[in-house]
Design a protein around this nucleic acid. Sequence first.
DNA 1: GAGCAGGTACTCGGATATACAATGTCCGAGTAATAAAGG
DNA 2: CCTTTATTACTCGGACATTGTATATCCGAGTACCTGCTC
Lengths: 158, 158
Amino acid sequence: MNEGVEWAVHSCLNLAWLGERAVPAARLAAFYELPAAYLNKQLQALARADILTSVSGPRGGFRLTRPPEKVTLMDVVVAIDGDEPAFRCTEIRQRGGSGGGDTDAYRKPCAIDAAMRKAELAWRRELAGQTVADVMATVEHANPGVPDKVRRWFDDTR
Amino acid sequence: MNEGVEWAVHSCLNLAWLGERAVPAARLAAFYELPAAYLNKQLQALARADILTSVSGPRGGFRLTRPPEKVTLMDVVVAIDGDEPAFRCTEIRQRGGSGGGDTDAYRKPCAIDAAMRKAELAWRRELAGQTVADVMATVEHANPGVPDKVRRWFDDTR
DNA sequence: GAGCAGGTACTCGGATATACAATGTCCGAGTAATAAAGG
DNA sequence: CCTTTATTACTCGGACATTGTATATCCGAGTACCTGCTC
């Protein structure tokens, strides 16, 4: 999976803790010492998916489009990695020696593809069941000081 | 995901239908018109995972090490794609501005990593719950003629 | 005819090229704040 | 002092290199089979 997913989720958490204001990509990148231009690329993807809203010019940056309760981890993963399944059936069963006989036998779906889709569906369901707000709550429970710490850091280097 | 997973599962099905004898990689490849040397590479990976047993020399090839009821789809995917998780946490939370404060706060696991692992665990559980024999049964139910067809093709070009 | 030795063809196995995608970087278009000028 | 206007600095956005990984290929090591020879 794309490494940018990790950066994107962390950035969403930080944006949620920072509230309504827009934060530039360079600032978000500096917080984790990430390459700014590349993080910008990932945030653009989130903006295309309407998870973030981009604001140009001075005082611009990115902000959450909707509250974190409405953003699932599935949304973020799809925005960065795309919605194509990890396993893609290329229908090799129709090629070569096996393809000679009855052609309409392949109207039935590929059993291997079905099994893989079933597993991926379970994966998607788990991701869709967890929101950014849920992850925020987990962090605040394990380490209550984090939100204030984030706000302070972003305020100090304003 | 690696495309070779599809080839590997199909080959396992065919080997199961063909019974005990060893089948060369070139023959398995010809059945689907796949690049023989590359399929050989995937079968080697299955052999390293002890899913297949390789036999050298004339009349050699690959055969299933154990009956298809004992081979899960998880086994095959791990053999080809490796057992590393799709999402790997690089602990960026410890770098940059966030890393300054209490160091032992990061004894607690990363919440994002935990959420991703939970989803991947569901995926793995689904794959581990389906065996090659299950997929065979599904195919035979949807298209009963396939096993004989496979046996005939591999016998004719012996 | 049976046993044995040598050769041969076939198979896997890993080392070696190539193609494609993820990663990382850069500069231009657009915009809002700002400063200056005029009324 | 207020309004208008030009400037400026800042931000996103997409186009452009670079690195890494999956894809594909090739040749050597080993082995069972087969052929021919010997007893």
